[in-house]
Write a protein that binds this DNA or RNA. Structure first.
Length: 223
DNA sequence: CCAGACGTTGTT
DNA sequence: GTCTGG
DNA sequence: CCAGACGTTGTT
DNA sequence: GTCTGG
């Protein structure tokens, strides 16, 4: 699955992202976060009509029908296999998708809880598939939230973990961020494990376990 | 029609 | 809100 | 995902 | 063990 990741977007990576995805608001900053945990704000690329924006969402999707923004129905991950069958997520997939740029993500190896950092072999950003939701409180409060779509592990990930985030390849970005693209079967076809040969990984120290630790140390290989 | 649920992962 | 179950 | 809490009444 | 908070 994907319960922790790093969003450390360097200036040149941000410029490239803005250019490649045709993002409109070019002044947006992304806070460096070496240890993104559920409930944290995450930068994500969202679309509205013909425009794309880099905006912030609470990680943990709060359904619009939820009375309170409680943790109970707040989902950090959504299974790709069943997303169209879930009433809470179907409309979000058809109409409120996003791309979540990540430096990489953490997985804890199943038997021994050893944390690993998984990143792009070429050190570019990984773009994870996400869905978003808007929640309005009766007192006028407003929260926009997001979840990461997950899929089966590819062969690269299997030794570490059975699930992984959906990482979208460049040839799907345009459709994913297009409002009018709402064909369920096509969207579903994007939600599969990424190619094995684009990823690299290494073990990291367990200081990443604590959500209170957010430093460059989280990304450093274990000695 | 109304009532009630609405979710994932991992572990056992 | 929207879908399922009764 | 992991870490940390897990509770009430009454009194100060 | 199970739930909440981050």
């Amino acid at each position: 699955m994907c319960g922790r990741f790093a969003q450390v977007v360097k200036h040149n990576q941000l410029k490239k992202l803005i250019d490649e995805l045709n993002i409109r608001n070019q002044d947006e900053q992304i806070e460096l976060n070496f240890n993104v945990a559920p409930t944290h704000p995450i930068g994500a690329v969202m679309y509205k009509h013909e425009d794309r924006f880099l905006t912030f969402f609470r990680w943990g999707l709060i359904p619009g029908w939820s009375k309170e923004p409680s943790t109970q129905y707040s989902m950090i991950n959504v299974r790709s296999e069943s997303i169209l069958e879930k009433k809470t997520f179907k409309n979000a997939l058809l109409r409120r998708r996003c791309l979540i740029p990540a430096t990489g993500f953490y997985e804890w190896r199943k038997p021994d809880k050893q944390p690993f950092f998984i990143h792009a072999k070429d050190d570019e950003l990984l773009l994870m598939a996400g869905i978003t939701e808007y929640w309005n409180g009766s007192d006028g409060s407003y929260i926009q939230s997001a979840a990461i779509i997950t899929t089966n592990a590819n062969d690269f990930m299997k030794p570490i973990h059975e699930r992984m985030p959906v990482i979208l390849p460049p040839d799907t970005w345009e459709s994913w961020l297009t409002d009018s693209f709402q064909d369920p079967a096509s969207l579903q076809s994007f939600l599969k494990p990424c190619a094995d040969d684009i990823l690299a990984s290494y073990p990291v120290r367990k200081l990443v376990n604590s959500v209170n630790v957010n430093s460059e140390e989280c990304l450093k290989p274990m000695v």
